[in-house]
Structures are given as structure tokens and as C-alpha cells.
Design a protein around this nucleic acid. Structure first.
Lengths: 260, 260
DNA sequence: GTGGTTCCAG
DNA sequence: CTGGAACCAC
């Protein structure tokens, strides 16, 4: 089976390209982040007609929002609010093969990488910290995917030097994410299939008119798997062409294949 | 030659359908109202490429705004600010045949037809009054077109009874417009070609999903001509199908033909 | 309903 | 640059 993850930056604004992804790639399960829609305005029928009849929604009115859309039945769904602040940043569900799927949208963290002047940066580090506490006690084999809003390696950004003090690539964020990784021994699927130092990006800013010109991207989106289940992940790809589709998201989908 | 008039409710949002009008009907001169664009962001090049190289713009940043686009050279242009309040509601130019063309956007007048509680309604009546003073001294044969925001006859609205107290069809507005008509002996071209009591509308609200269903329109847009030039107007039409084009304006174009 | 603007967030 | 919301005007 295939699992995809995509920060679509408003699900309602992206119906044509999500439909296109479903028709051209047809992942069995699609995890969305930044749906920007409360559950009562989520286009559930639209995706049902495309065959994604199993849905786990965790939306809110304006910001954030995550969802799992699936063509196959899902088990035990649960949404964590690690910071207990009402933000819709996580939803998880059981895959039929016995692997748990966790879909996360980590806070972006604002502009200034200093928690004393930018509360959003502090909130981001705190979010990753609480995710780490949660991760420590995980026992089931798990696939965690989503927009982590951190590009941990030098080859995860177009210029390590230019971004070393830019939120998403600072040392303190990378350390926090590494602590998270160690808490469960997570295996970075992206880097398993595209080993460093090869460059790999999943996000390109809207601010530059043509993202292919100088390729100033970052790898902010990830798929990580429990060590016990790592061997079941047989393929992985970053669908970079989606960045050039009509009215694109600034993120592109990730897809992986799991042998069940 | 043919002259068209169209309230396009934002010229920048309407480029595809203005292009379509130009290609399918190719009026020699097109008068626009509600361009909602300052002159420095008006898409002048776009219309130049379509052959409308002669342009008289009278725009402002957010509201109102009028323009004359022409495939043939125009003479003596002039913009009146009758209320001296900086609103861009008129531009005129000389047609080669010796008839003056005046393009007007009369204020809508707000919701409540009472000048004591709704200043906008007072401004509308005042605007028509000042236009009337101006009209009294006109000597040249003139064609005045635009969105007058008044539906004077019973057959100019879908229900006289329902709209008799609705701004655009109240007795006081109709009297003001009639005083304007008398000030120059203006001939209502629309009603010359579509005599009362036949219904004729140029505007349908966006609020009803399908304007053709119950046809609740109003004739707010007009082409009026000096008595001395009335015989030169050989045809007139209301392009109602434009209301069903993609991303339409709520108004449709009027077109007339002038024998020169 | 539709568009423009402002603001916020990414 | 892009999307959502709030506000205003039509």
C-alpha cells in the first residue's frame, strides 16, 4: 500500500490539484496538513466521490488543520493536542497492516529564531519537545508523516550558510528534532532513499516566480518510521512536479510504499 | 461606427470577458464604468494589443473609475468632477463624427432612500442635479452613456411594486432623472428601440444564482442622445448573454450604432 | 454574490 | 507570493 503526505495550504483552494494527485498517483492513504478548514466546511463529499471514503478530520477555522483520507478502512483514530491549546496539528489512525499512522503539522515558528522575542519560536520548540515525550513511550510500529517545518541536514536546504539563522534550519531546531528522532529511533525514510549529501527539497517559497530557476528549496516535510517497521518501507518519492501544477501549494507531496 | 457601454465591476477582474466582447462584437468605442483601478494600474497595454490604442482614463484607487477605449482617434477629452469630491465618475471625448461622447457612473445611492438618514442617497440626487445644470448649457450634439443607477420606467424593473421603495426605482430618483432628461431633451435610445411596456434589463444581482430563472433585473444602464443627433442612431442592443459568461459583471454591455 | 482593501500568517 | 478573515460597497 502507498501512503502520501502533503501540506496543501488550504484544502478548499486546492481541490483541483488534490484531485489530480489522487487520479494520477492514487495513494491508498493521503495525509493532509494546513487544510485551513473547520470540519463542517471540509470538502468531505468531494473526496468521497474520488474513492476516499474513510476520513479522519482534525480541522479548525482559519489556520492549521490536518486530515487523513483513505481508500481503505482505518482503525482506532486519535487526535493529540500536545500543547493543549486547541490547535489542530495532529491526527492519527491505524493502518490495516498493523502500523500506526501519525499525521503532524509542526508550528512554523515565526520569523525570528529567538524565543525571548518571538513566542512562536518558543512554541515550536515546545511542540517538538512534547512530541518527543509522547514518542518516548511509543510501543507500536509507527509511521509518522507531515510538515515538520525543520530542514535538519545541510543538504536539506539550498544554502546552509544562507539559512543557518533562518527559522527551520537553526541549530536549536535541528537539535530539538534530533532529540525527537532519538526518542524512538525514528528512521528518516526520505534520507534512506536519498542519502545525504544529495540535495532533496519538499518546499519552495511562493515569493520566487519560478522555483526551478535557482531551486531555493527546503526539505520541511518528512516521513519517519519506527525501526521495527523500517524494513517494510519499500519505496519513497518526492513529487516535485506538483510544485509546477496550476495554483500549486508551496509544498509537494511525499509518497512511500509499505509492504504489508 | 458602434459605441458600447459596460459597467464591468473591476476592469482587472474582467480582462477575459472584456477581451471576449472586443473579439466577438468589436465595438469601435467602449465606455467602461466601475473600473476600480487607478490609472497607473489600468491594464492599458492589454487593450492596446487588442487594437484599442486610444484611451481616456479617469480612474481612482478602489471605487468608481471610468474609461473610454477606442480603436479610432478621439478628440478633446475632458473629465468633470461635478461634485468636486475627487470621485472618478465621468470622462468625455469627441467622436470623429462630431458627436461628443460622455461616459458617466452615477452614484449607487446606498440602501435607504432617505437623504436625512442616508447621505449617499442625498449625494446621488445631488449628482444628478449637478449633471442637470451641466446639461442645460450643452450645445454640441452629444451621446451620454453609462450606469445611471436609475431604472425610470415600470417596465425597467422586474416588479415595480416590489421596487417602488428600493433605491434605483424610487419616485424622487425618477423625477431627478426626468429633470435631467428634460434639461437637454435627451432621447432614451434604449426605449426608442425597445418601446415600453416591453421589459428591458441591463443588470441582475449576483445574489441570485441563475439570473435567467426568475429574471429579476433592472435597466440601470443607459444611452441617451441629443435630439439633434437622434436620427443618426441606427441600432441599439443589450447584450444580455454576457451576463452568463464566465466570471461575469452584474451589468451587461449596451451597444449602439451611429451613422456618420 | 462579488471584488477591493487591510490585516495576519505561511 | 498566497490564502483566509474582516470590512465595505455594490
Amino acid at each position: 500500500m502507498t501512503v502520501a503526505s502533503w501540506n496543501i495550504n488550504s484544502v478548499r483552494a486546492r481541490l483541483p490539484i488534490v484531485e489530480r494527485l489522487m487520479k494520477e498517483h492514487g495513494p491508498d492513504v493521503l495525509c493532509l496538513q494546513e487544510t485551513k478548514a473547520a470540519n463542517d466546511v471540509f470538502p468531505a463529499d468531494f473526496f468521497r466521490r474520488l474513492g476516499y471514503t474513510h476520513q479522519q478530520l482534525c480541522g479548525q477555522r482559519m489556520h492549521h488543520g490536518v486530515a487523513i483520507l483513505s481508500r481503505i478502512a482505518l482503525g482506532e483514530a486519535k487526535s493529540h493536542d500536545w500543547q493543549d491549546n486547541g490547535e489542530a496539528r495532529h491526527v492519527g489512525a491505524m493502518l490495516p497492516c498493523g502500523i500506526r499512522l501519525e499525521n503532524v503539522y509542526v508550528p512554523a515558528g515565526g520569523d525570528i529564531p529567538d524565543r525571548s522575542v518571538n513566542a512562536k519560536f518558543g512554541q515550536k520548540l515546545d511542540f517538538i519537545g512534547r512530541m518527543t515525550r509522547w514518542s518516548e513511550s511509543l510501543r507500536e510500529p509507527t509511521l509518522i508523516v507531515g510538515d515538520f517545518n525543520v530542514a535538519p541536514l545541510e543538504c536539506d536546504v539550498w544554502s546552509h550558510k544562507a539559512l543557518v539563522n533562518v527559522v527551520s534550519h537553526t541549530a536549536i531546531e535541528i537539535e530539538a528534532l534530533d532529540a525527537f528522532r532519538q526518542s524512538h529511533g525514528w528512521v528518516d525514510i526520505g534520507r534512506h532513499f536519498v542519502p545525504a549529501p544529495e540535495r532533496c527539497f519538499t518546499w519552495w517559497s511562493y515569493r520566487s516566480p519560478d522555483h526551478t530557476r535557482n531551486d531555493r528549496g527546503r526539505r520541511l516535510d518528512h516521513m519517519w518510521v519506527s525501526p521495527a517497521a523500517a524494513a517494510q518501507v519499500t519505496a519513497h518519492s518526492v513529487l516535485e512536479p506538483c510544485r509546477s501544477w496550476q495554483r500549486p501549494s508551496d509544498h509537494v507531496p511525499l509518497v512511500c510504499e509499505i509492504a504489508c
